[in-house]
Write a protein that binds this DNA or RNA. Structure first.
Lengths: 258, 258
DNA sequence: CTTTTAATTAACATTATGTTAATTGTTAAT
DNA sequence: ATTAACAATTAACATAATGTTAATTAAAAG
């Protein structure tokens, strides 16, 4: 904030102020399908949306009814938008303590017919198994997981189509350029499980190639093999387990291979 | 926004609303110092800050006077925060049409003593030569460029110390992982000029090494050599000029070298 | 004519990758 | 007991990229 010429100190009443500040959440999960025993799973990235009801619980007509929308709600003055996201997510789905990341603000005039409402958007990563906790809580809205590919065809509320496109762009970039893939995986995982996560959002040849990827994972500075820990969940042959370690990742496009 | 149980449609008056929505801008420039003729310049990344006045032009006491702060101001309902950033930047410095990027929102309760004020933060890149246009406009506040290293020691307004740390983190990452370095350079540039820009924020060995970097630039898919275009501004030997081309850059930490 | 210097090229050992093939350890069927 | 199946792992090797050191080039400046 600069000291604006028209500004009187401590008096903000002269400005028109926003009619609301909301927090929206793009909830991603990866569903795993076991095609058979002792084989790596097929994975698919999905986004959770809720269907807006015709009317709220007080019987009032709802805005944008019947359309699919991101979960979210109004932020209160006692919390940050990220705290609100966490709270809303728990109210909506019963899931607490999950990974959240801010990725954008939506403040285009007219984006919300109710007034000047600013949306602070986050994406969340929920491991598939934690979604089972959800069932008990979905008392209100219709909730559904959509594969990220076929989202375009659905009728979305407000400017959520645009927000969702950005969310997918951001999570895709973060999966490739940060260690956030960790959030989709168990503490210990095999090379093929990590590979399956990455292949939900990329067709990179070096990641598709099993031999190359299995060789590469051993040299990554932010992943370590866990001595003596093996699993048979992806193959009959007991397979090495890995874990992410805290290591700064800063990769330059000017030194990387292309 | 979900259809909250307590929500009446089209009636937002029941919620407490923010007292203000501001747009702040971390204005970066790289200053070039020519140590001698026919040699690459020494470059340094700097951040522009303004010193908050004791009182505004109406003679009222100002808030957080004497502290250094990011330029910025209140967003109006007819514009986005980015448009406000662009407008404020022009009002403040007379510079129009420069590169802006959103990097965060600051909404911690109590961050601004004037009330519930949400800051939407951007960084801006201004080529050094465009700062000369500034002189005429700095009618009001004291403006100064600070090397990004020694910012910690200055007294900063509000939570701007924190915002500035994030701004530096983001521009550093973007310089290495996107082609935004383009914004600091002329249309055509030599390998040593690009190298000098990158070395303002990294000590990566492969970028420091001249031979390696000069060899590498020729293979980067997002940069092309401009046929027959050479310059002598960095050396006596006429030097090849390059330009950025539009090419999607998506680099994975799982395939890159470490 | 000589020195100076950034850019460029050369050379070569080292390391990483792409690719194809073989080996391993286990399950499950015969 | 033997064998087929198969994901993981290792091996092998040609190709490509990188790190490093050194030589060459072209122009300026004395």
């Amino acid at each position: 904030m600069k000291s604006n010429k028209e500004e009187k100190p401590y008096d903000v009443s002269r400005y028109r102020t926003p009619d609301g500040y909301t927090s929206d959440i793009a909830v991603f999960t990866i569903t795993s399908e076991k095609t058979k025993a002792y084989a790596p799973p097929k994975m698919e990235l999905k986004l959770m949306l809720i269907k807006r009801a015709q009317q709220d619980t007080e019987g009032n007509l709802n805005i944008e009814p019947g359309k699919w929308a991101l979960p979210g709600g109004f932020v209160t003055p006692e919390e940050t938008a990220m705290e609100a996201a966490s709270r809303e997510l728990e109210e909506e789905t019963g899931i607490a303590g999950i990974h959240l990341k801010h990725f954008g603000v939506y403040d285009e005039p007219g984006r919300d017919p109710r007034g000047w409402i600013i949306s602070n958007a986050h994406y969340a990563i929920v491991p598939e198994h934690r979604l089972f906790e959800r069932k008990a809580h979905d008392d209100a809205a219709e909730v559904e997981l959509f594969p990220v590919q076929d989202l375009e065809q659905h009728l979305l509320a407000f400017d959520h189509a645009s927000i969702i496109r950005h969310a997918i762009t951001h999570i895709t970039r973060d999966l490739l350029q940060t260690t956030v893939a960790k959030q989709f995986l168990p503490e210990l995982f095999t090379y093929s499980e990590l590979q399956a996560v990455l292949l939900t959002i990329t067709d990179d040849k070096s990641i598709q190639n099993e031999q190359a990827f299995a060789r590469k994972i051993k040299t990554l500075p932010f992943i370590e093999a866990v001595e003596g820990q093996k699993t048979q969940r992806t193959s009959k042959l007991p397979t090495q387990l890995y874990r992410f370690i805290d290591a700064e990742v800063k990769q330059s496009i000017y030194t990387a291979r292309h």
